[in-house]
Computed example of a mutant assay.
Amino acid sequence: MTTNLIEAHVSKRFGKKTVLKDVAISLNKGEIFGLLGPSGSGKTTLVKLLCGIDEPSEGEVTVLNQKMPDLALIKRIGYMAQADALYHELTAKENLAFFASINGVKRTKRKERIQHVMKLVDLEDDLNKRVEAFSGGMKRRLSLAIALLHEPEILVLDEPTVGIDPALRNKIWETFETLRESGVLIVVTTHVMDEAERCSRLGMVRDGQLIASGTPDELKQETGASTIEHAFLSYGG
């Protein structure tokens, strides 16, 4: 039985501007796949295609053997955008309850799930605080908690740890590793090199093209580089 959860071979244009050029990836159950590249390289566009938020200009994306976009699959994907989609006038608990209801979390499980995900992101003491009073880093952590609420099989996270302090960032990555071990596919965009080192596999993106992919060790060996940063510069040079 195949473990591939996502297959994509896509190009994307906005008007005359080509944002993704013939990108092909296959993503597996129980791995953390990192998309590494500078701002404007096409990472966010690619993850939006993977989630069915946008459609490719050419090619297709299949998730769990279904062609995207497919509304029925949304409840099986946890998506965290680069911009926090939160209701600032509501408390954290009210935000979580709302997203739990639209993502199909059973009423009997909602309280337990809300407590669990808020503990994971170290916000359990802020449940009744309005989001408008949260710092930028707290909003990122709440967005991550929302993405985790419904126990999705696939997590797609766009720059999830921006603005989060190093100790908590490490804790969040430990959570990712636990989820990976349980079979969850995690797709994460980053430009932070130490995060890239923690991924099962990496796709290096530059100017809308996938310039290399493999495990961090494979990519370093292929380029003779001692770090992922040097490997990225070698491929992009």
Score class of each variant (00 low, 15 high):
86 L>D: 01
34 G>D: 05
70 D>Y: 05
162 V>S: 14
168 L>F: 04
99 F>V: 00
91 T>E: 03
165 D>V: 08
22 D>S: 05
228 I>W: 00
195 E>Y: 09
219 L>D: 10
83 A>C: 00
39 S>I: 05
85 A>D: 08
209 Q>F: 07
84 D>L: 03
181 E>R: 15
63 V>L: 08
69 P>E: 05
153 E>N: 10
43 K>Y: 01
208 G>T: 01
5 L>K: 10
176 F>Y: 11
26 S>G: 12
21 K>I: 03
219 L>G: 04
208 G>I: 01
231 A>K: 13
40 G>A: 11
54 D>V: 08
169 R>V: 02
72 A>V: 06
146 I>T: 12
123 L>F: 04
161 T>Q: 08
27 L>W: 05
155 L>G: 12
75 K>E: 15
151 E>H: 06
51 C>K: 02
41 S>W: 04
41 S>Q: 06
198 R>E: 10
96 L>E: 00
7 E>P: 05
168 L>G: 07
87 Y>P: 10
68 M>I: 09
45 T>D: 01
12 K>F: 13
34 G>K: 02
189 T>P: 03
107 R>P: 13
224 G>D: 00
217 D>E: 15
183 G>N: 10
151 E>C: 04
228 I>S: 04
151 E>S: 10
43 K>W: 07
31 E>W: 06
221 Q>P: 00
49 L>F: 07
198 R>D: 11
31 E>P: 11
218 E>Q: 15
179 L>N: 00
55 E>H: 13
61 V>T: 09
156 V>L: 08
48 K>D: 12
217 D>N: 03
4 N>T: 14
17 K>E: 13
198 R>G: 06
205 V>G: 07
2 T>P: 00
152 P>V: 07
56 P>I: 08
26 S>R: 14
93 K>F: 00
89 E>H: 14
223 T>E: 02
147 A>T: 10
31 E>N: 06
207 D>F: 02
197 E>R: 14
220 K>P: 05
107 R>T: 15
129 K>T: 11
85 A>G: 01
77 I>Q: 01
183 G>V: 07
109 K>T: 08
110 R>K: 03
22 D>A: 03
17 K>I: 13
207 D>I: 00
161 T>R: 07
39 S>N: 15
152 P>L: 08
207 D>R: 14
100 A>L: 03
210 L>S: 07
216 P>E: 14
91 T>S: 15
152 P>M: 11
112 E>F: 01
203 G>W: 04
51 C>A: 15
177 E>F: 05
66 Q>L: 04
172 I>F: 05
49 L>T: 06
131 V>P: 08
33 F>M: 13
25 I>E: 04
